[in-house]
């Protein structure tokens, strides 16, 4: 669909969906700093957080310009309330143990990779350029999460149990990512095959059961979140909001 045919508010919501996924994912990954299982993994998780944060900033800046109301990336990140956030529920879920974090990363990156790949061909050139940069980064995230999912799934009894529990816990939240949206620059409904093609072989190699489809919580794209998000935002926004108008 030609972007000019879509109402600006709708385009804005789509951009915020992409941006908020990345921002909230970065915020969660940042919680791992100084707590990863090994030093090398501290460096890796921080890199992934930085990638997501970088993408979020580009998308929020673009969203602010498109809106034309003078809001920059910080106004959008720090001064919206949880009901105005458009991220999927999956990214706001707590980190849990390393297995839950890897399950979240596996599923998010297996969604973002075909999404950004498709967006590189969309008619919105600015968005296509951002997607082109983010796509390469997300391919790396998917690779990293896949390596770990396989090692945890096929490692020890304990790691297998934890990884299976993580996959089972997070799987229901993947459905929301593919909710049909014909007005979106790329309709998410068309991405699920690519997602499954990436994820199912990883789970199989990891000797993990692919969970059955069933419960499918959703609401994030329209601002109805889990209880977790407002805590995440309260922490993220507290200092910025305590000093209205200050520059940092």
């Amino acid at each position: 669909m030609n972007p000019t045919d879509v109402p600006t508010q709708t385009r804005l919501d789509h951009l915020l969906g992409l941006a908020d996924d990345a921002l909230v994912a970065a915020q969660r990954l940042g919680e791992w700093v100084a707590a990863a299982p090994e030093l090398e993994e501290d460096v890796a998780l921080a890199n992934i957080a930085l990638d997501q944060l970088g993408a979020a900033r580009l998308l929020l800046t673009y969203a602010g310009e498109l809106e034309g109301a003078g809001r920059d990336e910080d106004a959008l990140a720090y001064l919206r309330d949880d009901r105005e956030f458009r991220n999927a529920l999956l990214v706001e879920l707590p980190n849990g143990d390393f297995a839950v974090t890897m399950a979240k990363l596996l599923f998010v990156s297996a969604y973002q990779l075909p999404l950004y790949t498709a967006l590189t061909g969309c008619t919105d050139e600015r968005l296509a350029a951002i997607a082109g940069k983010a796509r390469k980064e997300v391919a790396y995230h998917l690779d990293h999460a896949s390596l770990w999912t396989v090692r945890l799934g096929d490692g020890t009894e304990e790691s297998h149990r934890r990884m299976q529990a993580a996959v089972d816990e997070i799987w229901p939240y993947t459905h929301e990512l593919f909710t049909p949206d014909p007005a979106a620059p790329v309709d998410p409904a068309g991405l699920r095959d690519a997602f499954l093609a990436a994820v199912e072989p990883v789970l199989a190699t990891a000797t993990l059961d692919r969970p059955a489809d069933g419960w499918a919580p959703s609401g994030g794209r329209s601002g109805l979140h889990t209880e977790h998000l407002s805590y995440l935002l309260a922490e993220m926004q507290v200092l910025h909001r305590a000093h209205p108008g200050a520059r940092w």
Partner: peptide, 9 residues
């Protein structure tokens, strides 16, 4: 907390 991860790998 990381020991089970290191052991698994």
């Amino acid at each position: 907390d990381g020991s089970w991860v290191r052991e698994a790998a």
